[in-house]
Design a protein around this nucleic acid. Structure first.
Lengths: 141, 141
DNA sequence: GCGAAAATGCAACTTGGTTGCATTTTCGCG
DNA sequence: CGCGAAAATGCAACCAAGTTGCATTTTCGC
């Protein structure tokens, strides 16, 4: 899907930076961190990129996931991402930081009324940590 | 259980700070952040507290959970915490930051071999976000 | 109670993210 | 087309959580 159309639909201004950011994320099709995006960019102020990402999350065209390293990663929504309304788990390599969306897998239901009836759930985060293929190979050679 | 005995068993030195930290966490029986502990302390250097917490996690007498605010919380192990070998979910109020261990609930199994056979899982984090009773009441008055 | 190993305190640093503000750009509307 | 309000950008400064290095003090096995 064309990033320009996505921006228009979300009532966001189609500036060069914003188009670029969205294109990068759509092409990558995996959650990327702020630094990662900044490096991929030719020229963009880091604060501007932070604000772009915030705006995109606000406009619901990205979702963001906190890694176990405390760094946020941002992932463009594709139609695959809407399969599980309650969100999906994320795989994260603790060695290189790479993250993957497990878009097909629903997150387990929690019967909160039986645990803490006074708690109001807004959403859930499920992070699966470990070592990816690449890093595992590197470690065992 | 006496914190001194726990420290001895874990081959950790029983200094005043360490006993105090462990006692605070055992008494609270919920995950606490570094600042929260520091405030509860009378006099302790913040770096020292960081190092104590690290040592305790290393020695496996605490577990730590990253909140959606990017701040680590530390929780003393009780025998309840060992019910679910694969870990348990955590409830977090996004308004006040308070966290609760759902020690009775096992985290869903992920059949990683069918998804990414090359990924090696080390552990899982399941965070349930929302609003606690207190904060919900405050918002709706 | 001696001495090696570990714990502590302090200063300085790193890093991811935020805020304020002046300047520039976008885009709806006449 | 081009005007002007609203939004986006760039820059500097800031903030907070966590880390590192190092000199001093404390613990605890012998």
């Amino acid at each position: 899907m064309d990033s320009l159309i996505i921006l228009r639909n979300a009532h966001l201004r189609a500036t060069e930076h914003r188009i670029r950011t969205l294109e990068l994320l759509l092409k990558a099709n995996r959650p990327m961190s702020h630094v990662e995006l900044l490096n991929a960019f030719g020229q963009c102020d880091r604060v501007t990129l932070y604000r772009i990402l915030d705006a995109f999350v606000e406009a619901n065209i990205l979702h963001r996931i906190l890694g176990s390293d405390g760094i946020w990663r941002f992932c463009a929504h594709t139609n695959l991402h809407h399969k599980c309304p309650g969100g999906h788990p994320h795989l994260m390599c603790e060695s290189c930081g790479q993250m993957t969306c497990l878009v097909d897998i629903p997150i387990q239901h929690i019967d909160i009324d039986n645990i803490d009836p006074e708690f109001h759930i807004s959403h859930k985060q499920f992070l699966i940590l470990g070592t990816c293929q690449n890093c595992y190979a590197k470690k065992h050679t």
